[in-house]
Design a protein around this nucleic acid. Structure first.
Lengths: 183, 183
DNA sequence: TTCCGCATGTAACCAGTTACATGATTAC
DNA sequence: GTAATCATGTAACTGGTTACATGCGGAA
């Protein structure tokens, strides 16, 4: 697909500036799609030319002006069509996995240190996701529509991180010498 | 990183042709890194210029000639250095997740059908991985070194697929009307 | 005779990253 | 004074995808 449709989804929830979108791609939607601000601006330009979004310049005091983008009817139509298309299966590219596979060609302990570091990164992300879940969706059983969909995506992020942590632990258990492990 | 190092790892296990490498990227290593044959050939060219690999033309009867690539000492050195560097955390890009999040903007049932389709794709991949595990690593407790590392990466693929299936199921349970579910 | 597997590639293109650039305000 | 946050962008580059091209052998 590419960023376009992720932006359409994001704008369907809330009109916002490129800056704001870029920040949201560091959070909520960002669990499953990332984008730098440079790319967001570039793509927004294209989308405006295509007539999917319109910009409204908002002046602020004490802060730079901003362009707030909103979906047009064409944008909404595009989004609807895209949703009906098949989604291609995600490709997981894990540099860490390649390093683990090739570890015997270098210093295995260095690779293990990386696995440990990644484990912590995933644990941190899991914590933020869980805090998010607790704070934003305290009563999941009652959720309907949009909110339920958002919740489900967050749940996906949570189980992804849990899986990653478990995998790191499996590697660490298997590759840490028993002498170190038991002491 | 990029493909280069994945190819170095692959060649460290077994010298092979570009065609063969491309096929392996559809399997074993491919759980965590993919590449088309076009890209493999392109990168192999670059790697040969850099002196990381050498090609040996092998004539075959009844089949086209092939170039079998092998690691050089420089290639091995490069691999060793790369293994000592930190790995950047993977970015998971899931088109399906974006569709789930935006589902309310279109036909929710169409998105659910996609979730169901993806569930089956993941289930199929899980089956191949499990068959692989059983066949190639019947006695995991005894594994050491390279073989153990390969096994651990396969385990990662397995838990990734399991996680994906569970997530799909969670979505299906949450979004399928109870009337259809209980029947 | 048509399609699949083996085997290697080129060319055009697109998506995404990194580096660079500007400028005001606020908090330490 | 120094760094962080808000806000928008351009330019160069890299990595990866898609389309196209060739040619033999064997199976259906």
């Amino acid at each position: 697909m590419s960023l376009e449709h992720a932006i359409l989804v994001s704008l369907s929830e809330q009109s916002s500036s490129g800056y704001d979108l870029a920040r949201r791609f560091d959070r909520s939607i960002g669990h499953f799609w990332t984008a730098t601000h440079q790319q967001v601006y570039k793509v927004l330009g294209r989308m405006e030319s295509a007539g999917w979004v319109v910009a409204d310049v908002v002046e602020q005091d004490g802060r730079p002006d901003k362009k707030v983008y909103a979906l047009t009817d064409d944008g909404r139509a595009e989004l609807r069509e895209w949703l009906a298309e098949p989604a291609q299966p995600e490709v997981t590219r894990s540099e860490l996995a390649v390093k683990v596979r090739g570890a015997a060609n270098g210093d295995v302990r260095a690779v293990l240190a990386e696995v440990r570091r990644h484990r912590e990164l995933h644990a941190d992300r899991l914590d933020t996701y869980l805090a998010n879940e607790k704070h934003e969706f305290p009563d999941p059983a009652r959720l309907r529509g949009r909110r339920l969909h958002q919740y489900l995506v967050l749940r996906g992020g949570i189980s992804l991180e849990r899986g990653a942590i478990e995998w790191c632990d499996e590697i660490l258990t298997a590759l840490t010498p028993a002498t170190k492990r038991t002491r």
